[in-house]
C-alpha cells in the first residue's frame, strides 16, 4: 500500500477503518479483479454454487466465532463432523431409525460431543486447545470404530434436497446458513448472552466478579459448536450422498482461517459474525476465482496463505495507528 493511500485511510471516518469494512473493500477489489479476468466468475449461477460449497465450513464458523471471542478454541469440529456423519448413517442403517429421527440423532451426537468438550473445559479447567486437540483424536477414532470404516449409502432421494436441491432458486443449505448467520449475528450483537461472551473473552476474572454465568456461557458455546458441526455433517452427507468416517478432516483449520481472517481476535474479546462471513466468502471466492482464472490448486493454496497473513497485517496495522 502506498504512503498516500495509507494517509488517506488514516483520515477516513472510523467505520471505514473497522477490520470488517477494510476486509470487505479488499474482497470487493479482489472480486472485481478476478471477474475482469474471467467472465464465468461473477455469474449468479457460480456465486450460488459457491454458496452451496461453503455452507459446511460456514455453519461451523458461526459458533467458532463465539468460541474464539470467549478466548477459547475448538479444534475438534472436523472430527465431530466425521462422528455425526457416521452416526447418521449408523442410526439409519443399523438402528433402522426413520431418516428424520436419524438426523436428529446425528445432531444430538454432535451437540453431545460439543457438550463434553465444554463440560471438561469448564469443570476440570482443561484449557480448550488441549481438550479439543485430545477429543479431535478421540472423536475421529470413535467415528472409525463405530463405522468399522464402512460407508453408508443409498439414502432416499428426498433427503438430497437438503444438500443438492434448491429452494426459492437458491441452494437449500445456503438459505439455512443465511438464517443462522442472522440469528448468530443478532445473538452476538444484541443480546446479553452475546455481550457476556465479549466480557468473558476480554477479562474472564472480571466477568466472574460481575456475576456473569461464565461457565454456563462457555458450556453453551462449545455445545453450539458441536451442534453446528453435526448440522454441517448432515448437510455434507446429503450433498455427497454417502457417509465416511474421514469426513470433515482438516475442517478445523479452514474454519479458524475464516474466523481470524474476519477479524476475530484469537486472544478473545473482539470479533463479529459479519467479519467471519466476509472472511468465509473471501476464502471461498478467492479459491474459486483463482481456479477459474487458471491458477492451479497448489498455487491457490499459496495465495490463500499469503492473503491471510497480509490482510490481517494490513487491518491490524491500520487499526493500531488509529489507536
Amino acid at each position: 500500500m502506498s504512503a498516500a493511500a495509507e494517509t488517506a485511510l488514516l483520515r477516513a471516518p472510523w467505520w471505514l477503518k473497522r477490520h470488517e469494512t477494510l476486509l470487505a473493500i479488499i474482497l470487493a477489489v479482489a472480486l472485481v479483479g478476478l471477474g475482469a479476468f474471467n467472465d464465468r466468475f461473477l455469474t449468479l449461477d457460480n456465486l450460488l454454487n459457491q454458496g452451496r460449497l461453503m455452507t459446511e465450513i460456514g455453519l461451523i464458523a458461526l459458533p467458532m466465532t463465539f468460541v474464539i471471542i470467549t478466548g477459547g478454541i475448538d479444534l475438534s469440529v472436523g472430527a465431530i463432523v466425521g462422528l455425526s456423519a457416521v452416526m447418521l448413517g449408523y442410526a439409519w442403517k443399523t438402528f433402522a431409525f426413520p431418516l428424520p429421527l436419524a438426523i436428529v440423532f446425528a445432531l444430538f451426537v454432535g451437540g453431545l460431543a460439543g457438550f463434553v468438550n465444554g463440560f471438561v473445559i469448564t469443570r476440570v479447567k482443561v484449557p480448550p486447545l488441549i481438550m479439543t486437540i485430545a477429543t479431535l483424536a478421540l472423536y475421529r477414532g470413535l467415528a472409525e470404530g463405530v463405522s468399522q470404516a464402512h460407508s453408508v449409502r443409498g439414502y432416499p432421494e428426498a433427503f438430497y434436497v437438503l444438500g443438492q436441491g434448491d429452494v426459492l432458486g437458491a441452494p437449500t443449505q445456503l438459505l439455512i446458513l443465511i438464517v443462522l448467520i442472522v440469528v448468530a449475528g443478532v445473538a452476538l450483537d444484541r443480546t446479553t448472552f452475546g455481550r457476556a461472551l465479549y466480557a468473558i473473552g476480554s477479562n474472564e476474572t472480571a466477568a466472574r466478579f460481575s456475576a456473569l454465568a461464565v461457565d454456563r456461557a462457555k458450556l453453551v458455546v462449545y455445545t453450539l459448536s458441536g451442534l453446528a458441526s453435526g448440522l454441517a455433517a448432515v448437510v455434507l452427507v446429503s450433498r455427497v450422498t454417502t457417509t465416511r468416517m474421514d469426513m470433515g478432516m482438516g475442517y478445523e483449520l479452514d474454519v479458524i482461517a475464516a474466523v481470524v481472517l474476519g477479524g476475530t481476535s484469537i486472544f478473545g474479546g473482539a470479533g463479529t459474525i459479519w467479519g467471519t462471513v466476509i472472511g468465509l466468502v473471501m476464502i471461498q471466492l478467492l479459491k474459486n476465482g483463482l481456479a477459474l482464472t487458471g491458477v492451479k490448486g497448489d498455487a491457490t493454496i499459496v495465495v490463500i496463505g499469503a492473503a491471510l497473513i497480509v490482510s490481517v497485517l494490513i487491518a491490524s496495522s491500520l487499526q493500531r495507528r488509529r489507536e
Binding site: N38, R40, N49, L53, K287, L292
Partner: peptide, 12 residues
Amino acid sequence: QIKFIDNSITSG
C-alpha cells in the same frame, strides 16, 4: 476433489 470438479464444470 468435488470442488475441483465443480470449478472445472464452471470454467467450461
